[in-house]
Design a protein around this nucleic acid. Structure first.
Lengths: 249, 249
DNA sequence: TCAAAAGTGTTGTTCATACACCCATGG
DNA sequence: CCATGGGTGTATGAACAACACTTTTGA
């Protein structure tokens, strides 16, 4: 009982502290989220870039992104980083909330080198995502950007800020992830053939893979229940191929 | 030439914009770095915690860390995130700059859930590090903390803020890293036996490893030149064992 | 129009590697 | 008791070979 009262006193002191607390005048950075969205277009791995309509770097291409909405209001401190990333995804790509919400965003890391934004100190939290090629054509410029377009990774224009660095790190992130988890399934349509999935892997890794070996790994995943055969087949360059589907857990 | 002039005009416009720019009144979050420092003490994987001397969470244990020093001054926007992490490492552990500078800090990610700090909106960038057990005893409370001590991972006290989450993610980060890179060498003294390194791996993974298999992997690394035999041997519980050293690249 | 050639996916084999599991030895 | 050192079987991936089916090419 004594212990409980002591605890309550502690809590009271903490409560009193919080109610009297006024955020100090220590300088704070702005915080943004930047998105690296990959897709496959015309058998090329591409990423979404937007053209900046305002200074700084006006006219330059940049990763989509924007400021995280925050507040010191104790009851509503604003949106989370993940929410901010999803909001920017929807805003800058024009995808509706339902589709944007289904996209799996993964945090790549925080980038905060001084001077990366000439206006002021900005710390950016980068996210990456893989967008189904069936959704990619729906993307259009939205928000406060001039234009939005998919750029093949080997035809990138000069990028604003340190976005080239962020893009490199995001690509490394996706490559590392691909070795251990089946996220590549987000880069193919709902149903796909073995060869189609192999092509996507080849694009991400940047090198060709042995069709036979890939097939074996693929069929092993079918036995494990990660993949399942879907109805129908598809006409390909050679033999008609069966189509498969990713089994959602 | 015309092109060059146009380009200069663009640059001029950008320059003019920057000189006229005044950071807006958009609310900004505070940004901190938090450190998850692992070491091995008495054959137990442990992490460094500090006791908070001030509200909020006064008296609670927390990860060492602090605010990133930033500024909107265009000539000096303050320290980088990595620098902030190293500075906090030195400040809160009392390690001298030379030793603290040698510690390899890796970014784990950004944590920015609203409400994680009851005072105000705070976004934290977490770093993790492995500290040589020979350095661990030198650590003492520094900076504005009550006390600092090493806690075994299975005897953690309740932590302030969302630091329990951050710690979990940092541990997962280290485990994932350990499978592909030899950072475990930072958790043993300069020279070590095969069994000692295996023990460290077992501690990090939380499960015992086959001595024979580990030995084979170890000797393979010796052949690759990642490790080399050091002079002397060490008396162990059983047979005297040779000692090895990590080859710095 | 038909047949050969080229392209591509499929199926099977070989080889080397790495790990899991087991066991005898010796300090 | 436990690290050492060795052994075997298995799973996996790399590289390669033979084959099936389709499309293209050219007589």
């Amino acid at each position: 009982m004594v212990k409980k009262r002591a605890r309550e006193t502690d809590d009271d002191a903490e409560q009193a502290f919080l109610e009297g607390y006024r955020p100090g005048a220590f300088p704070r950075p702005s915080v943004t989220v930047d998105l690296v969205i990959f897709t496959v277009r015309d058998r090329v791995l591409s990423t979404l870039l937007v053209r900046r309509g305002e200074h700084p770097f006006k006219g330059r291409w940049a990763l989509p992104g924007g400021f995280v909405r925050v507040s010191d209001d104790r009851l509503d401190q604003g949106e989370s980083l993940d929410d901010a990333a999803h909001r920017e995804l929807a805003e800058e790509t024009g995808l509706d909330a339902e589709r944007a919400g289904k996209v799996r965003l993964e945090q790549v890391g925080a980038f905060g080198a001084p001077g990366r934004d000439p206006r002021m100190r900005v710390i950016s939290v980068a996210y990456c995502a893989l967008l189904r090629p069936t959704l990619a054509p729906l993307v259009r410029a939205g928000g406060d950007v001039d234009a939005a377009r998919w750029y093949p990774l080997d035809e990138l224009p000069p990028l604003a800020f340190d976005h080239a660095t962020i893009l490199d790190r995001a690509l490394a992130h996706v490559r590392a992830r691909l070795e251990s988890s089946p996220i590549a399934f987000e880069l193919v349509p709902e149903t796909f053939t073995i060869a189609e999935l192999r092509t996507v892997h080849e694009l991400v890794y940047g090198q060709s893979l042995d069709p036979g070996n890939f097939r074996k790994r693929f069929l092993r995943m079918v036995e494990e229940g990660v993949l399942e055969k879907a109805r129908g087949s598809r006409a390909t360059a050679s033999k008609p191929a069966s189509v498969y589907r990713f089994v959602r857990t």
